[in-house]
């Protein structure tokens, strides 16, 4: 049959044959442009902002949030949310730190911390996937539980005296980049490949896009969700370990409000809280936008209260721009 497509929808779409393949990068490009604009403004207002040292500094300062936000993005794409990342990080931090302080090998301590993070995340995932509870509520509950565990374990006191051997591991540089920045760069590549080129990545998008259709198509829903939350927990733990190395101590109150920073980075980067949409590159750009804002305002000696204000404005502005540009599709 040679009938032309009869639906108007199909006709409009046929005008831009490869739009979808470009779509993700177009959205990411938008975030990038936003970042460039912000940087340009700060460069005009401050001589220091655009120096190599300061730019590396921004990346360094953003690396903790970037790390958490990559995991958050996975969860958000799968149609969920993880409010418990901060307390999960605290659990991982205090465990790893206490092992380090009592003389366990560095690598083993790090692995133990990461494992705790992954287990905490998987616990969230199991409650969500098998008990059918809402992600918001589950992770709101575990937010308290994990924080309490960290506080109980340490008696509320910070764990001090982390060995310098461990601290040096993250304080060194590869070429001009500090190790945490390199770690994040590796995570971006691994995360992007995982989302775009593995069955798990497709499953995460499918579960977030339409869970029932995914189920009928044979997607292992529970396993996919648990994997997403476990990754989020794992990456929160990794962020915690980077932070412990930087500070030389592990506070049980570490990671306060990390979840909000990470959600903000994901949202600025184009992840939809409805699920089924988002990108790792976008999220990283989002995290750097937030980091550059904070850095620039600090350089300009703007009071912290106004920094908070600016962060909020940037989030809303990014969403508005997103909304307006999508309206034209």
């Amino acid at each position: 049959m040679t009938t032309p497509p009869s639906s108007a929808g199909a006709q409009t779409a046929s005008e831009a044959p490869s739009r979808f393949r470009l779509r993700l990068t177009v959205r990411d490009l938008g975030t990038l442009i936003g970042l460039v604009v912000i940087c340009a403004v700060f460069a005009m207002l401050s001589d220091v902002f655009l120096t190599e040292r300061n730019l590396v500094n921004i990346l360094q300062q953003s690396s903790i949030n970037s790390c958490v936000a990559i995991g958050m993005t996975m969860v958000i794409i799968s149609g969920g949310i993880d409010l418990s990342v901060g307390p999960v990080a605290a659990c991982a931090a205090v465990l790893a730190a206490s092992l380090l302080v009592s003389g366990f090998p560095v690598l083993l301590s790090i692995c133990a911390g990461l494992a705790v993070g992954a287990i905490c995340g998987a616990f969230n995932g199991v409650l969500i996937a098998y008990a059918g509870l809402q992600p918001f509520i589950v992770t709101l509950g575990t937010l308290s539980i994990f924080r309490a565990l960290a506080l109980i374990y340490t008696g509320g006191n910070p764990i001090l005296g982390v060995p310098t051997e461990f601290r040096r591991l993250f304080a060194s540089e590869i070429w001009i980049f500090p190790v945490p920045v390199v770690v994040v760069a590796v995570l971006v590549v691994v995360g992007s490949v995982l989302l775009a080129r593995t069955p798990l990545g497709e499953y995460i998008f499918a579960v977030g896009g339409n869970e029932e259709a995914a189920r009928i198509s044979g997607v292992p829903i529970a396993r996919t969700k648990i994997a997403a939350y476990a990754m989020s927990g794992f990456l929160a733990a990794l962020a915690a370990i980077i932070l412990v190395a930087r500070l030389g101590a592990a506070e049980p109150t570490l990671g306060n409000l990390w979840e909000l920073e990470a959600i903000a980075a994901s949202a600025i980067g184009g992840a939809s809280l409805m699920g089924g949409k988002g990108s790792i590159v976008g999220t990283i750009l989002g995290a750097i936008v937030l980091g550059a804002m904070r850095n620039g305002l600090t350089l300009l000696n703007v009071q912290a209260f106004y920094q908070l204000l600016a962060t909020g404005v940037i989030i809303i502005l990014a969403m508005l721009i997103d909304r307006l540009t999508r309206g034209r599709e």
Binding site: F205, G209, E212, A213, G276
Partner: peptide, 10 residues
């Protein structure tokens, strides 16, 4: 729409 497709995917 409800059970068959993941609308925003290719």
């Amino acid at each position: 729409k409800k059970d068959g497709i993941v609308p925003q995917r290719s």
